Amino acid sequence: MELEKRKHPIGVFEKPSVITAQQLKEWIKDIAQFPYILKATVAPLTAEQLQLTYREGGWTIQQIIHHCADSHMNAIIRFKLSLTEDQPVIKPYPESLCAELPDSKNFPIAASLSILEGVHSRWHALLQEMKALDFNRTYIHPEYGKSFRLDEATGNYSWHCKHHLAHIQLALK
């Protein structure tokens, strides 16, 4: 399988020209279900299987799980900042470097699975209560030099969940 297909097995996120209420509802459902699908996928894996990668030089399954916890903790904070401040500038973090830290490479996945369950439960509750105008609120991502609306961010994180589940499935093949 070619490198780009392994790197982005479900393709890259493409924001629809119009984000409908139905599309948003589906993305919110993806976010709600992710920790349970992830846990069911990785629960039967051995310590050796958690060290499998989806491509040469790619992260291990263990690193992917810890990365998702890191990423999604940042995501809910970005949403909360956007809902309480006017166009906040968010703080990016060096994902690749974080994935190489000892807690991502050597620490058991149980803690990150618990983090994901808790964060996604709260995030889902927040998303469910947001009004249509709330999804128009934005944050500025300095790494990209642009602002992101929360409806687009919801879609991007839905994609992020599926993207890394696909990485884990590739690693297990």
Rank of each mutant, 00 (worst) to 15 (best):
E2K: 10
E2C: 04
L3V: 07
R6Y: 03
K7L: 10
H8K: 11
P9W: 09
P9L: 07
P9G: 07
G11A: 10
G11S: 09
E14N: 07
K15C: 11
S17D: 14
S17L: 10
V18M: 02
V18N: 06
A21E: 15
A21T: 15
Q22I: 12
Q23N: 08
L24P: 12
K25M: 12
W27Y: 15
W27A: 11
Q33S: 14
F34P: 05
P35M: 08
P35Q: 09
L38E: 05
T41F: 05
T41Y: 07
V42E: 04
A43S: 14
P44H: 12
T46K: 03
Q49Y: 13
L50C: 14
Q51M: 15
T53V: 15
T53K: 15
T53D: 14
T53G: 13
G57Y: 05
Q62F: 02
C68N: 06
C68L: 13
D70Y: 04
D70M: 03
H72C: 04
H72K: 11
I76Q: 12
I77D: 09
R78H: 03
R78E: 01
F79I: 11
F79H: 06
L81F: 09
S82C: 07
S82L: 00
S82G: 15
L83M: 12
T84D: 01
E85N: 10
Q87S: 11
P92Y: 03
Y93W: 05
E95N: 00
S96Q: 08
S96A: 07
L97H: 01
C98N: 01
A99F: 00
A99V: 00
L101D: 01
L101C: 00
L101V: 00
P102R: 04
D103Q: 12
K105E: 00
K105C: 02
P108K: 14
I109N: 04
I109T: 10
A110H: 13
S112G: 01
S114H: 01
I115F: 05
L116P: 00
E117Q: 09
E117G: 05
G118P: 00
W123N: 09
H124D: 12
A125K: 13
L126H: 02
L126A: 06
L127H: 09
Q128A: 14
Q128P: 03
Q128C: 14
M130E: 08
K131D: 07
A132Q: 12
L133P: 02
L133N: 14
L133C: 05
D134R: 04
F135T: 08
F135Q: 12
T138M: 11
Y139N: 05
Y139K: 06
Y139I: 02
P142S: 04
P142R: 08
E143H: 03
E143A: 10
Y144D: 08
Y144R: 15
G145Y: 08
G145A: 07
F148N: 02
F148G: 01
R149W: 02
R149H: 04
L150F: 09
L150M: 11
E152N: 01
G155K: 01
S158T: 07
S158M: 08
S158K: 09
S158Q: 09
W159F: 13
W159R: 10
H160T: 09
H160Y: 10
K162R: 15
H163T: 06
H163Y: 15
H164R: 01
Q169Y: 02
A171H: 08
L172R: 10
K173D: 14
K173H: 14
